[in-house]
Design a protein around this nucleic acid. Structure first.
Lengths: 207, 207
DNA sequence: GTCTTCGTGATACGAACGTACCATGAAGTT
DNA sequence: AACTTCATGGTACGTTCGTATCACGAAGAC
């Protein structure tokens, strides 16, 4: 046999190529040949590692979600261990805003997948429901803890605030993406929203 | 000459067919032939009234925005003449939630257009920027008036609240669309958000 | 009554797409 | 050494897409 190549690694390279070209030209415009060219391999190879385009798309969606999770984790690490709930929540929300190229690609491709999932049933079942629900639970739990620690204003409903915050940051992300708003002003809106949830000076570092 | 048909009317019929099939199968999956079949005309006719597909898409986008504006206006009329600012704002936001078939189609197709506009420059200039900005201005002005009438809570920033509300309702609309949430729960979240902006009991009917 | 113009149909064309097929060299196995 | 198996390249097939072309009937113009 030849070089006995690592399948998993190769699949990831190809999936990354898919995401790169999808971020540039839009997911709808991505063909197998484009992915092959971007990855620097032949069309046959893409077929070899992903038998069908649908499987490639599904795997690409997984990688996209994973990459996002990693960026959130990195930002949380950067925020420090003893960061208060508000800092954690800000890190989580700001990561999903299309500030740099990586998050811009994430937002565009993720939205494309979302639109596709409405009509294509193969995509509908996939982690589309799972992952955002996890984010919602995490966020709601953080808010609940903040509420118990008396860091929030009265009248706060952790679950509803969590849903609203996620929806708002998604919507803001889209408007940044289409060039309707700058990432800076979107961040300001999110900050203002958090101001309405947390007490003044509350939720930063717990020290 | 033959029947001397009304061009504008025919173009609208075809554009409506485009929106119907786009709402069913997704904008990415719509071809000229599909539109022709849906409108009950031949492919040639679609070509005749819209020379190119791009022009058809552009016109369809206009019609979509117009239809949305009409539904908002209708809902405002239904809300009554003397409705307070909160009622008007609620009408505006709830209309964009995918509750019935019309708004569901609107949301899906509009999002599809948004995604396309990121990469296709022909779509990028069009009313995508214009219309949401108008909505934002309207909403901000309504909030400013409510603030002057002392109907809002302290710390309210009309512009930021307007941006945030629109982004939130767009994001909620998407999650309703992909089946992640019900329209009812999305509406509850929006109501809760408005509760955080308006004073208790404030903003209903001004009487 | 011819003639032009408008509306409409059928069909053809070239490109691009996803997929399938065939070939071949390189590395293990026996 | 013979043989199998893996990785890879090249290319062909059938379909579908947007667009272009050809054709023709029906109505107003002169």
């Amino acid at each position: 046999m030849p070089k006995r190549v690592d399948h998993a690694e190769r699949r990831n390279e190809i999936a990354q190529a898919l995401l790169r070209v999808a971020g540039r030209r839009g997911l709808h415009a991505v063909g197998m040949r484009d992915v092959a060219a971007e990855a620097g391999v032949s069309l046959r190879l893409v077929q070899y590692y992903f038998e069908t385009k649908e499987k490639l798309l599904l795997y690409g969606l997984q990688r996209l979600a994973e990459g996002f999770g990693e960026r959130v984790a990195a930002r949380l690490r950067a925020a420090g261990d003893g960061a208060g709930p508000r800092a954690v929540i800000e890190a989580l929300l700001m990561t999903s805003l299309p500030t740099d190229e990586a998050s811009r690609t994430f937002h565009l491709v993720y939205t494309s997948y979302a639109v596709l999932s409405v009509t294509d049933r193969a995509l509908a079942g996939q982690p589309f429901i799972k992952d955002p629900d996890a984010a919602e639970d995490t966020l709601a739990e953080l808010l609940r803890q903040a509420q118990e620690a008396d860091l929030t204003r009265p009248g706060v409903d952790p679950r509803k605030e969590a849903i609203g915050l996620l929806a708002m940051s998604a919507g803001l992300g889209t408007s940044v993406l289409v060039g309707q708003r700058t990432a800076r002003s979107a961040a300001a809106v999110l900050t203002h929203q958090l101001d309405g949830i947390f007490r003044e000076g509350g939720g930063g570092a717990p020290a």
